[in-house]
């Protein structure tokens, strides 16, 4: 018997050496998104198509703003990690490196733009 947890034994294995870390990160963000996404889908369903003032009022609400901010950060990191895995499956060499950078840049740009909008609407 080895005095190691199953997680400790699995970490660092596999060709990329990061599979365990990736799996745990996607699982943790997945649980968070399981709570955040249904709420935001219904908020958006009621808000998209609304007038300028209605949209501003909805996102000025602290609960909606905080949940949206959490979704942007957790959701877009979840997206970037998932997109990176997909890219690693199909693209190779310089194309792979470039696409991973594009996916991460798009995720960070979305987070930054969304948080800027939320702060501007809150103050």
């Amino acid at each position: 018997m080895r005095y190691l947890t199953t997680r400790k034994r699995a970490e660092g294995l596999g060709s990329a050496r990061a599979g365990t870390e990736h799996h745990l990160a996607m699982t943790a963000s997945g649980w968070a998104l399981l709570v955040l996404v249904p709420i935001l889908v219904f908020v958006l369903a009621r808000t998209i198509g609304g007038s300028f003032d209605e949209v501003r009022a909805t996102f000025a609400n602290p609960f909606v703003a905080i949940l949206t901010a959490l979704f942007l950060v957790i959701g877009m990191r979840h997206f970037a990690k998932g997109a990176q895995t997909a890219i690693e499956d199909y693209a190779h060499g310089a194309t792979r490196a470039a696409l991973i950078m594009v996916a991460n840049a798009a995720a960070y740009l979305t987070i930054a733009a969304g948080l800027y909008a939320l702060i501007k609407l809150a103050i």
């Binding site: 958006l44 998209i48 300028f52 949209v55 501003r56 996102f59 949206t68 942007l72 959701g75 877009m76 997206f79 997109a83 798009a106 979305t110 733009a113 969304g114 800027y116 909008a117 939320l118 501007k120 609407l121």
Partner: peptide
């Protein structure tokens, strides 16, 4: 990413 991108653009426009 398409729907999220459009929604963030819409939110940003509402803020601007």
């Amino acid at each position: 990413v398409v729907g999220i991108g459009l929604t963030v653009a819409w939110l940003l426009a509402a803020a601007v």
